[in-house]
């Protein structure tokens, strides 16, 4: 069944995935299901979309924003590579994630241990002093 934007009246073919992001013409998020024979009825018979909806008793299709979707439906939120402070993440012994941007910037090493926001700061890499010292602290 075709779709009709309730805001501007633009019609879309059945199965059109263009409307998933809202109407490309007006950005409307609410669409009326219409039978092929009812297409262009608003123009031809000078009826409002509301009237057509009442006549045909068809359902509305509402496109929901990502923000309104339940938490589980969204992809897990990930901090952008550039915003991360750690140069290396140790997921578990033998599995590592490397932040190339940070590694390319400097030799200073901030290592994140697992996903529980524990960080290792390699102080030696941050100073020119020959006295090397490693400090470990919990951020949280």
């Amino acid at each position: 069944m075709a779709h009709k934007c309730t805001q501007c009246g633009r019609e879309f073919q059945d199965g059109s995935n263009v409307i998933l992001k809202g109407c490309p013409s007006c950005g409307g998020k609410k669409f009326l299901y219409i039978q092929p024979q009812d297409m262009h009825k608003d123009v031809l018979e000078e009826k409002s979309i509301k009237q057509i909806a009442e006549e045909t008793k068809e359902q509305f299709l509402e496109i929901k924003d990502d923000k309104k979707r339940p938490e589980t439906a969204r992809t897990p939120k990930r901090v952008e590579m550039y915003d991360r402070i750690e140069s290396i993440t140790v997921i578990n012994p033998g599995s590592y994630e490397l932040n190339l941007e940070k590694l390319a910037e400097s030799d200073e090493l901030v290592i994140r241990m697992g996903d529980d926001d524990r960080y290792l700061v390699d102080i030696h890499s941050m100073s020119n002093s020959s006295k090397s010292k490693k400090k470990k602290y919990k951020k949280r």
Binding site: I88, G94, S95, Y96, E97, L98, L100
Partner: peptide, 28 residues
């Protein structure tokens, strides 16, 4: 150069776990 190094990948090539973990560490 890569953004992810996992020793499991080396195990798939028939490497022992200890050796694979060592390789992952050295690769990092």
């Amino acid at each position: 150069v890569t953004t992810k190094i996992d020793y499991q990948e080396f195990i798939e090539y028939g490497m022992e776990k200890d050796e694979a973990v060592k390789r992952a560490r050295e690769a990092t």
